[in-house]
Design a binder for these strands. Structure first.
Lengths: 352, 352
DNA sequence: TTTCAATATGCAATCGATTGCAGAAAAATA
DNA sequence: TATTTTTCTGCAATCGATTGCATATTGAAA
């Protein structure tokens, strides 16, 4: 029963006894077409329940009006927000989104990219996965006439359009804030150093210490602590040190900061009095823990919008090259209970 | 400079002095092709950096191996998880995902559906938006040979494949749990009643009261309280009643439950002693509030997987019709501090 | 050596729309 | 009325791959 053939412009043409050229023109109203004919075509199209084949159209036109988005995890807050931001803009421009996730695996990332190239998307937007060990697959993209935009986690050596956060500056501000609050022994939970964002955050941390004239203590720097569990583990280790830190900057995520907080609460260590905590990302929950967690807002939805706008701007100025290659978004430090010691406030003029 | 033409099978054919038929066959290795020829083709393809045009292929083959997903909001936890679950399965089957969001607007939903029909996706997966006022656009889908699967928020009158949560049962259990904990005056925060899920949750609430022989108090039922703010507002109103409730079931979401909790904390009303609270969705934050919030886990990622599997099962059993039309997932009540009064526990055998 | 099957390749149509070129019809101008 | 311009429509190629049918080659069986 279900073998109904697809309705094409040929069906419309036949019914009206005209050619497909005319039908096509009537449907895309950009050339001379008799008003009466056009009306007929439109009516017949509606009557036959015709839907233009995007496939055929794209094949002929050589562009798909589709953007491929590749992220480590769709259901990670930050990425979900970025995608929502991209969608917000692309929807208005009648572009479609194909979404892929890499699960942080390089192999999967390569496969996703290839799929998108095969799909002939007009643009690929990517935030690279944590275990990316080379970028050949990304280099291949532009060779197929596809625009490539990297965001957040980027391969810096590749000369592509980029939308990034100023992670170094944000970290610098966060750590400086801790210092201003009177913390002197500040530990860092760092992420995989093959990702630029985590290198930058570390660099901001180091710079802040240096600026304040505080010596770096290597035992305070813990690698790869980017889940709640690892954050908790790291905290236990840190607090057991003979000379334990008095603040922890969980540069990896708010989840690890939460791990820190939970361990502190468990050990009855007072936050922020005895231990200051700062996370990263401004996850919704940071506001409702007790105490609430100081963190950094990345404006993720805006970041998504910036990515989409960058693409369309570049498209518009084709060849003129008058658009910035890299857009940097300044994250915002959000000071909350986990790092705010009232007494210090007066001395140091911390914002509310 | 960038005017490099796309490499096609014609280029490969020409270079090897054979026809495109052979090249095509070598590339899709499903017919007789001389091993040596095949090797040559594969090598040349790699050498020329050939990528098969999915567009042309899809046009010819009449199927796109693409699934369109339409959700109210991509960056809402539940939906992001469902999408991730779908992706997990479709990735393995080499299917692609086109994602659209409706922002809860009917107009946008209609447009999304049309786009997906034009794209000739093989299947459309949808959770309808809150202000859907008719389903003509959905009815049109199957007419184009596209499979339609509804999940979570479904239009019950449409006879399509469905993956749903047993919302009524879950609500029934949640409210029964509250009753078992000794709460007698249980309020309900309800969502838009044009959505089946909220009707079912209400129904479960009513059934639980009835079963326990508790009369329904209409002033305890608050409409449209499905954000944190609205939840807080509703709570203030409820607690101001001469005969205020002693428990609130925020059937709309954990966010409204959070609103309830915050107001209670603010008014120094003890939870769970003086007020019991139960939310819906098992958002990550429910575990870390104080007290933690009793809620209902919907197994969102599994739900996504179920959706994808349903599609592939149906595809496999084409025509045989031996697959279930509706898959119901049983949500799980997660009892936490906000509704767990120790004293009652002994009497009523509540699970941990 | 003849016959038949299996293997390998080519030819040409097809999927559904777009578009340059050309001719016809209509309208505008001389 | 003759000529030019504008509007309308048709023809046929094209986008890049797939595939049924036909033919050619090879090898095995008779």
């Amino acid at each position: 029963m279900n073998s109904r053939k697809r309705v094409t412009i040929y069906d419309i043409a036949q019914k009206l006894n005209i050619t497909v050229s005319t039908v096509s023109r009537a449907l895309s109203d950009k050339q001379y077409v008799n008003a009466a004919t056009k009306k007929l075509v439109l009516e017949t199209a509606a009557e036959l329940n015709y839907k233009r084949s995007t496939l055929a159209r794209n094949l002929r036109m050589g562009q798909t009006k589709t953007i491929g988005v590749v992220v480590p995890r769709i259901n990670q807050n930050f990425f979900a927000n970025v995608i929502a931001g991209i969608e917000d803009i692309t929807y208005q421009k009648d572009y479609n989104l194909i979404i892929c996730q890499t699960d942080e695996q390089h192999e999967k990332e390569v496969k996703c990219i290839n799929t998108l190239i095969n799909q002939q998307v007009d643009c690929i937007v990517i935030s690279v996965s944590a275990d990316s060990y080379n970028y050949d697959h990304l280099k291949a993209v532009t060779g197929h006439g596809i625009q490539l935009i990297q965001f957040d986690r980027v391969a810096e050596e590749l000369d592509t359009l980029k939308v990034i956060n100023d992670n170094e500056q944000a970290s610098f501000e966060a750590v400086t804030h801790l210092i201003n609050q009177g913390y002197k022994k500040i530990a860092l939970l760092e992420g995989p150093q093959n990702l630029n964002i985590f290198r930058q955050r570390k660099s901001g941390y180091l710079k802040a210490l240096e600026t304040a004239g505080i010596a770096v203590n290597d035992t305070y720097i813990i690698e790869n602590a980017w889940t709640k569990e690892l954050g908790a583990e790291a905290t236990e280790k840190l607090l057991r040190l003979p000379d334990a830190p008095d603040a922890i900057f969980a540069s990896t995520s708010d989840f690890s900061a939460l791990g820190v907080l939970e361990v502190a609460n468990q050990l009855k260590i007072k936050v922020p009095e005895q231990l200051g905590i700062c996370g990263y990302s401004n996850e919704a929950f940071t506001e409702i823990t007790s105490p609430s967690i100081t963190t950094i807002d990345q404006f993720s939805v805006d970041m998504g919008k910036a990515v989409a706008n960058l693409f369309f701007d570049d498209l518009a100025s084709e060849g003129k090259g008058d658009t910035a290659k890299v857009i940097s978004i300044k994250p915002e430090l959000i000071i909350r209970g986990s790092s705010f010691r009232q007494k210090q406030e007066n001395k140091n003029q911390e914002p509310g």
